[in-house]
Design a binder for these strands. Sequence first.
RNA 1: GGCCCCGUGGUCAAGAGGUUAAGACACCACCCUUUCACGGUGGUAUCAUGGGUUCGAUUCCCGUCGGGGUCACCA
Length: 544
Amino acid sequence: MDFNALAERLLPGEYPALETFEKRYPQRDLPAKAEVTRLAPSPTGFIHLGNLFVAIANERIAHQSGGRLFLRIEDTDLKRKVDGAVEAVISALDYFDIRFDEGAQIGGDETYGPWYQRQRADIYRAYAKELIRRGRAYPCFCTEEELSAMRDVQTANKETTGYYGKYAKCRTLSEGEICAALDAGKPYVIRLRSAGDASRKFVFHDEIKGDVNVSENDQDVVILKSDGIPTYHFAHAVDDHLMRTTLVIRGEEWLASLPVHLELFSALGFRPPKYGHNCSLMKMDGASKRKLSKRKDPELSLSFYRQEGYHPFAVKVYMLTLLNSDFEEWHAKFPDKPLEEFPFRIGKMSKSGALFDLDKLNDISRTELSRLSEGEMLAFLRGWTLDYGGERERAYFADEAYLREVLALCMGTAGKKRRKDFVTAKQALEEIGYFFSDYRQRDAYRVDPQTRNAVISAFLATYSHENDAQVWFSKVKEVAASLGFAAEMRDYKANPDAYRGSVSDVAEVLRIAVTGRANSPDLWSIMHILGEERTRARLQAALA
RNA sequence: GGCCCCGUGGUCAAGAGGUUAAGACACCACCCUUUCACGGUGGUAUCAUGGGUUCGAUUCCCGUCGGGGUCACCA
């Protein structure tokens, strides 16, 4: 077989000599320990919490080591392409502070581009042509039907499925057969002629998983699809070599194809990067865990968190606590230090899949939000409102001084004790709704209507808006006492049977009447922010 | 099903051949309290299982079970 002639027939024309690529994409000039990492999404426009997870790890490792992080777009499958997807990816990641040094739409150093794989078609073909010349790749004319029939046979025989060994029938086609098929205009793909033996095993060191047992690849994988575009595997080997990637952190689902990648690197004469296969984020589905899925878990797309109004910092803190178990302690110890100062270590990443825990995220969100000043909170809420808020939320910003006052009270920024009532922007705006015209009773009264009316009327009878907090509260106590409730918590606790309840129960009635909820900041302050008129109106309305 | 990965409380997890097996979330109780919170203290709860190795195993080895991943001209 004349491989040179075959290569010429399959990929006619002049392709640059491979050395020119080595020159065009030189070894990077970086410090010794610097790592070059990347994110290589396909342009579906969908970004997942899992993507963020991996993105943060890649970003940290690159920047912490003085290396580079780049963005490459894996657009080799046109079926997946969605317009504006790249912008969406960048914007979503940017929201969480992931900044690329170079890559698609980044505008940094362009040396290692182009960053869209479709624009690199000639590069892949040049390497594919070389592989054909060396007899390491060959054309395959098998149709989809043939392949699937073959798979059925293999399954029935309980054999490994795929294109390998005796099943790789195009591997042994004669020159004449190939030419005939080509002359007939049959579509074909280019496959790797694997030199591996699946019965041979070896140990591979994974940066996250540690030593992993793998078998050699023996599959004649497709490297160039019938449209001349490379498969992921081939593009990965070529690109990550030429872009001088030193470390690939990617999802665990790639571990199975690692042998393919390793053989590709070796066939191409490239040194493979280091790999870290990171476990996927799991979700509880009924009684069992499962990987987060785009289809089934739209609520776990990155845009969900933005829409809900989670603070990006909080999400990042949560991701980091899952990524490196000692981060949480570090962050608790140095809450004011920038996250970048945390010594992130790939070796600390967990080998087992973490279950996504919304309770934990919410707790972190609460804590992080409670650390903001009311000015920062105002800005955060405004940002969210501009993007996702409705008319109601927008109206809250009409009187900024008033809003500030509300936030200061709700966050406890004035006093020494911060409150932790806010979890997300959306929820916070809902939470403060009662300071605006839309009163809604959210929580139910725990006392019967008669008692409720009695409490409210009694309070109304003595209510004087000018009273300071002290006087105001002593009046609440009087109301309590007059209706058979303990005025002092202590008394109630000492002898609960002697009372119908305590001041707490009385205050709760008033609280619900005024705010619509059983939880709120200091009631007296609320009444004073609302003003006498609205306060009386709400109490009055609650009587009805 | 084959192959690979994983297996400490409900969740995230630290940990070491001998420990009272950390911590965080959630939950419960109590304390503080001028109501709501914040906070504080305490509590319930874990080494999947069987067999080895060992004076001793949750830790090392093997099997079992369980969970996950992967077996495309998708990435």
